[in-house]
Design a protein around this nucleic acid. Sequence first.
DNA 1: CGAAACCTTGAGCATGTTCAAAAATCGTGG
DNA 2: CCACGATTTTTGAACATGCTCAAGGTTTCG
Lengths: 232, 232
Amino acid sequence: MRTQAAIAPSAIHQPAIHQPSAAVPGGELANALNTVGATRLVERGAELYAEGAAADSWYQVRTGMIRLCKLMPDGRRQIEAFLLPGDFFGFEPGNEHSFAAEAVTDSVVVAYRRSRIDQLTASNPSLMQRLLTLAIKQLCEAQQKLVLLGRKTATERLACFILEMLERSGGTRVVNLPMSRTDIADYLGLTTETVSRLFTALRQDGILDLPHPHRLVVQDREALEEISDGAQ
Amino acid sequence: MRTQAAIAPSAIHQPAIHQPSAAVPGGELANALNTVGATRLVERGAELYAEGAAADSWYQVRTGMIRLCKLMPDGRRQIEAFLLPGDFFGFEPGNEHSFAAEAVTDSVVVAYRRSRIDQLTASNPSLMQRLLTLAIKQLCEAQQKLVLLGRKTATERLACFILEMLERSGGTRVVNLPMSRTDIADYLGLTTETVSRLFTALRQDGILDLPHPHRLVVQDREALEEISDGAQ
DNA sequence: CGAAACCTTGAGCATGTTCAAAAATCGTGG
DNA sequence: CCACGATTTTTGAACATGCTCAAGGTTTCG
């Protein structure tokens, strides 16, 4: 819980980190939706909704971190995304959620009922435009991840992950990693052991410090960028 | 060229295979956009647009097959999707295409200028609603592929691919595969050799026939479904 | 403070890759 | 319609990356 306490405050002050230069910053959209949201606390490890649950709302993270997970019948897991304050999620084409949403740390999310959103968009077409832009942006991010999972090596994947978390940490060289090594592995299509070994290797190469399993300091960002492209 | 000639006609008669039961069938959306599209022929192997090209239009496949590709600096390639008649593509959050679009077979696509779509949606909010539903559907499909690339074995990936192509072939047990083994490998995050070996293994297990490298007949769909889940 | 969970490290192994060559198919030109 | 060179597909053998299984350390949290 201490880890979480250390992360939430900085996150609160950067509510739209994930879309720093986007056409649809989370804050703006959130303002438009302000009156119709229901705030909800989700404790660390708890499920906001399960895979297959009725999808009647969209959500936005206010504080904390949410992970979206899919499970295969035999227990293999893929994490689709780690969501930070400002991020929207829960869009579904059908009436069921196609993945579970769980809290990595104690989190606050706002739920917007679809029926209420439909009412709002009917009278406010620019809101719909923003939602479309947001969905397209998320599509593009998912497609970028296809390259990572389909074609990158383990080292390249971890370098990409660290850079991604670094960008979302808003300007510092310090990255908080509240999720477990297993979470990182399930996000990158690797095993816990491989992730752990690669962290050690990057530390031994002087590319990063690991003062704590859940906190890293990037020492050589350019090296990470070279590794992440496959320049090696 | 004979392969393409054999495939295009059947494709023409099933223009919306990819969204057979969708809330936003390609045909309906296409009708709404009818007046603003510009038809374009793309020859086998040719590029409709390059990665990084200006993204000023959205597209729909009319006939043939389009592949969306991303390249890494060293030449590794990931195919994001194979698009069939009825499928929309080319949505981008920014002003550049984040992947190339190339014709697998001689294809006809319709291009809709973004500026014209913006005009249409301004006067027709339900069109925007349909575009949003379409984008969310594509997001969901991309997320499904993350599980495939992140967590499935080579055999499971190929079984998923065959089932996907089967669904899109509209009811028969015969699947046309106009793309090369390398294309399939780049779609599934494997190598050409592995794909070829797995096809051979499935044939030897009596699960499918391969009368021709570009045509397969599914003999045991249930076996494919079991394999694709990881039930093995 | 102590038990449980998580992280790290090691050694052996398996899946899928790489490199190489043979077989099949394609597609043009006679 | 057939022949021939180019391309693609298939098959084989050796190899490497990342996984599995196992044990020892560290961190978490009641």
